[in-house]
């Protein structure tokens, strides 16, 4: 176990170092590619927290991506702020939107919740289409050169000795990578905490959890708000790279929710490494089937269905069952029974 864990930490550290060093050594196209993957990963980790741990199956995550993106555009175009400040505003706007959304959606349970969140996301899309200052239904673009004038771009440009555009790519990439690492660590710490234990108890048996003093609504609402914040940040950051926003693209249920759901389900819903595995599978599929149009979506859907039928904890769940290796375990070992010998000399678990 300890050996496993140390080895795992070493590997993770090496992988992270390589990922952070990437803009210095790899071509720009690869950095942009990875940026896209990391975007999906962040979204998937957030959705996994919601659906896999809090039992909130939302089909309305595109609301937070879209609102994050639009708030960022508004901050840049209407208020003239730095894009990086805009990203933060995007996250905050998404979290603020989550408050009334939660008041409405939390009245609906289970499957109704999925439809309710979807409707709210559609309301947000249609409402933002009416916002003429940001282009209404046809959307708008970032002013030319916005990305190049972001804070820190000049320093990165000198450091890596690349063009401003490449430096801006590197900056957004590093931010997205840090967001992914941040969400992963935060999820782990949160789920290992008392609150996380309560959350998993609710998922397994809500009545039993309530009887020992866990407040389901409060915990679920907290997770809903936090994931809205993470999703909003991610959406805003993604649209700095895209540079053009339209209601249909920013609130796309396929791009920001369907992909994310399949990634999580295929990788392993309710496990922390699941989304990482899922995003790798997604990327491979997209690459292999790139020449066949929409086939990869069909394959993705079928894979998702197959996973739900035959291996509900996804590829990562299969891996744990086969090998017994769990890299980010969330289980708490119960205290040992001490019947015959005093516990004082034993090493605690």
């Amino acid at each position: 176990m300890t050996l496993n864990r140390n080895l795992g930490l070493c590997l993770a550290f090496l992988a992270l170092t390589a990922l952070y060093a990437l803009p210095a050594i790899a071509p720009r196209a690869m950095v942009q590619d990875l940026f896209g993957i990391l975007t999906l990963l962040v979204l998937a980790m957030n959705w996994n927290l919601l659906a896999g741990f809090a039992g909130l199956v939302s089909v309305g995550q595109q609301a937070f991506v879209g609102i994050g993106a639009y708030a960022m555009f508004a901050a840049i175009i209407l208020a003239g702020l730095d894009p990086l400040v805009g990203v933060l505003i995007g996250g905050i706007a998404a979290a603020l939107f989550a408050v009334p959304m939660a008041f409405f959606a939390f009245r609906l349970n289970g499957a109704y919740f999925a439809i309710g969140t979807w409707v709210v996301a559609d309301i947000a899309r249609l409402a933002i289409s009416q916002w003429k200052a940001l282009g209404g239904g046809t959307g708008t673009s970032l002013p030319k050169g916005t990305a190049k004038e972001m804070a820190f771009v000049d320093q990165i440009k000198e450091l890596l000795d690349v063009s401003s555009a490449a430096a801006a790519d590197a900056l957004t990439y590093w931010l997205m990578l840090s967001l992914a690492v941040g969400v992963l660590i935060a999820s782990y710490v949160f789920l290992r905490s008392r609150m996380g234990l309560g959350l998993q108890a609710i998922r397994d048996n809500e009545n039993a959890a309530r009887s020992v003093g866990v407040d389901p609504v409060k915990l679920k609402a907290l997770v809903f708000l936090l994931t809205a914040f993470g999703t909003g940040l991610c959406g805003a950051l993604a649209f700095i790279q895209i540079t053009r926003v339209t209601p249909d693209a920013a609130f796309s249920v396929i791009d920001w929710t369907a992909f994310v759901i399949f990634i999580t389900v295929i990788g392993g819903i309710g496990t922390l490494p699941g989304p990482i595995v899922g995003v790798a599978v997604f990327y491979l599929l997209q690459r292999l089937l790139a020449d066949y149009g929409t086939i990869y979506l069909i394959v993705l859907g079928c894979l998702g269905i197959a996973v739900m039928l035959f291996a509900r904890r996804g590829l990562w769940g299969l891996f744990i069952d086969r090998t017994g290796i769990d890299l980010l375990p969330l289980t708490h070992r119960p205290p040992r029974m001490v019947a015959s010998r005093p516990a004082a000399h034993r090493r605690s678990a």
């Binding site: 499957a111 999925a114 069909i298 269905i305």
Partner: peptide, 10 residues
Amino acid sequence: LLVTFGLSVV
């Protein structure tokens, strides 16, 4: 939910 969602995309 997820199976029917998959079916929808397929």
